[in-house]
Design a binder for these strands. Structure first.
Lengths: 203, 203
DNA sequence: TGAGTTCTTGACCGTACGGTCAAGAAACGG
DNA sequence: CCGTTTCTTGACCGTACGGTCAAGAACTCA
């Protein structure tokens, strides 16, 4: 579906994307019908199929945009910083902020995991994210700043820990992104063990 | 739906639960119809509604059983161990093993997160799991074995990190549960920082 | 102004869904 | 053996879904 869109057309497309995102996040993907989406915008059903091939393609489009937007945010946050550990920290902080402001996208991503047909679109974005983190981790290992173990386990661990803290503390308990980021970073850098070095954690 | 079931009845109910679990995990909850489930067992549709009120109730029942089964496994794994850090480690190891053997349940849980109406049943189980971990964490803090920070962040962090490693390394990359558990425990206990103490990590 | 394009309408289509129910088979209990 | 309960059948119901399409409105641009 690659149409030439006028300004009006782009506007309409954006409306559809945003309204659908909201409904998908609130009610779930399957329970939200195309009829519901066009009714919510007060337009005919044909409008939907003028801009998108199918409900499925619309959803994939939403995922793609979300991944793009998050990545752009992270890149901006870490640019100009050289220390790999500081880069990881900045990445986590910006992710927490972004997640707090885009709970809808977060929910949609969680759902997408559960259906085979959405996994391909997801994996692409996940792989990019993991590669970003792994690059900093490997860099940290090379400079002797990070324990020399499997960079992929570390990268996935960082992602998983951050994701869970976002869900529980930001989206459910409504703590501030800053507080959550502090805790995430402390855990990631030094784990839970007590020890003389742990007092020196702050970068 | 509290019927008095004969042996045959219990058997039928179990068949329905197991077959539905498989299909839900393979194709997703919504794409799997009740008709498909009863056809798969070669029985009439009425059979389904003799044992369950609705498709939704069946799904909730599956979730409940999975949570119960995992918890029982964890409890068995840690009984008799006194050291809180060793208890956490044993809990993680048994969870990894269980997850490797019950990928279906894992997938269903991931889906359940994405629909409002399943959240209540989920939260109950999650809260129990978190409380279990938090008790050990608090115990560890009291004995000076664990850094004295918010036990809830630590507990959620452990859960999130473990969950992600299970998904990626056990279910997608098919690594052994033991290897994954080793990495998870190393990260949780000591974080990613280098440092003299990190060599003493193994319990 | 008028031809061409973009955009919108909403009735309509076939299908598949979750769920019901009257009827009867099978098993149980005395 | 018979009455009762448990279990099974499968046609049927109303509904809602994703998607189509002929027709026309709105806009663009020469």
């Amino acid at each position: 579906m690659n149409r030439r869109l006028t300004t009006r057309g782009k506007e309409r497309r954006r409306q559809l994307l945003e309204f659908a995102t909201q409904r998908f996040a609130d009610n779930g993907y399957h329970p939200t019908s195309v009829a519901e989406i066009v009714q919510g915008l007060g337009v005919g059903k044909g409008v939907f199929y003028w801009y998108f091939d199918s409900k499925e393609q619309l959803f994939i489009e939403i995922l793609r945009e979300a991944q793009q937007d998050l990545r752009r945010t992270q890149q901006q946050a870490i640019e100009g910083e050289d220390d790999p550990i500081a880069r990881i920290e900045l990445g986590i902080r910006s992710t927490m902020l972004w997640s707090a402001e885009h709970e809808n996208y977060y929910k949609l991503t969680q759902f997408a995991i559960t259906e085979e047909r959405f996994l391909p679109s997801l994996r692409k974005g996940q792989e990019v994210a993991i590669k970003d983190v792994m690059r900093h981790v490997q860099d940290g290992i090379d400079r002797g700043l990070i324990r020399d173990t499997s960079a992929d386990y570390i990268a996935q661990g960082i992602l998983g820990l951050s994701t869970q803290l976002v869900r529980v503390f930001i989206h459910e308990k409504h703590r501030s992104p800053d507080e959550v980021a502090d805790e995430a970073i402390a855990l990631i850098l030094d784990g839970i063990h007590t020890g003389d070095r742990s007092a020196a954690a702050p970068i």
